[in-house]
């Protein structure tokens, strides 16, 4: 099985430790992932701004970069969703079709491709899980409150399986954090307010470590946590599992 690590542009530049943790976590699970270094970005920032036309060369570059891999694994549900969902506007060559289905989010890969549903280790902290909308509603990684009162999902289960970890029960389990890509600057006021409300829900219920599978949401929430000088650490779930797993 030939696996590539897809490291979203902002993770590469600002959160390298998340990519390192992803790579190491995969290695511990027996998967040696390559990092094709010509990779750049999925093109979502442009497309979400209405510039899908401008994003097409980026899409084609993405496909060329990853066409030879069986799986393209990324620690970011939103980027993965973009590749799977929105690469429909370029010619659907066999390579494009392959890359769209081969691109999977890190925890989808671990649980569904590798079939690993439990990760051993301990993390004795009160942990708040932030569900990324694209992961949850786009990739169907977790139940949505619009459909059912049952709060469930693969990342929630994996976290709950860590020794000593206590999950925070939020008032609003799956409200959007307000990042939204370029929304965070074009609608900066609403975006910040949404993030503040999301963080407040966590703080109110005792979250000490805020985590999730999508670093873009976490980047936004971390910015608010640090501005408000709150006693909350923000970690990508890959960092937690990589640290917990011997």
């Amino acid at each position: 099985m030939k696996v590539a690590l897809f490291v979203p542009c902002y993770v590469d530049q600002f959160y390298p430790q998340v990519a390192v943790a992803s790579l190491q976590l995969l290695a511990k699970l027996g998967v040696r992932a390559d990092f094709p270094k010509q990779q750049t970005c999925c093109g979502q920032p442009m497309a979400n701004s209405g510039c899908e036309q401008e994003a097409r060369p980026v899409y084609r570059h993405f496909v060329e970069t990853f066409a030879d891999y069986d799986y393209v694994v990324g620690p970011a549900g939103s980027c993965v969703y973009h590749v799977r969902q929105h690469f429909d506007v370029i010619d659907q060559t066999p390579a494009v079709r392959h890359v769209r289905t081969a691109t999977v989010e890190l925890f989808d890969f671990i649980t569904q491709v590798l079939g690993v549903t439990e990760l051993p280790g301990a993390f004795p902290h009160k942990v708040g899980l932030h569900l990324s909308c694209h992961g949850q509603r786009g990739l169907h990684q977790a139940n949505a409150s619009e459909m059912t009162p049952v709060r469930d999902g693969q990342l929630r289960r994996l976290l709950a399986g860590l020794e000593g970890l206590e999950l925070t029960e939020l008032d609003r389990n799956d409200e959007c954090c307000g990042f939204g890509g370029t929304f965070c600057v074009s609608e900066a006021g609403i975006s910040a307010r949404m993030g503040q409300d999301r963080v407040a829900d966590h703080v109110r219920h005792g979250t000490r470590v805020l985590t999730g599978g999508d670093m873009s949401c976490l980047m936004h929430l971390e910015g608010i946590v640090r501005r408000q000088k709150l006693p909350v650490r923000v970690l990508h779930a890959a960092e937690i599992f990589n640290g917990a797993l011997a």
Partner: peptide
């Protein structure tokens, strides 16, 4: 100047990108 920074801190820039580390 930067709408991001009105209510949020910018990410602390790491010394090294992932690609540099990987190399």
């Amino acid at each position: 100047y930067n709408p991001w920074a009105i209510a949020r801190e910018l990410p602390t820039p790491p010394r090294q990108s992932f690609r540099d580390w990987y190399a």
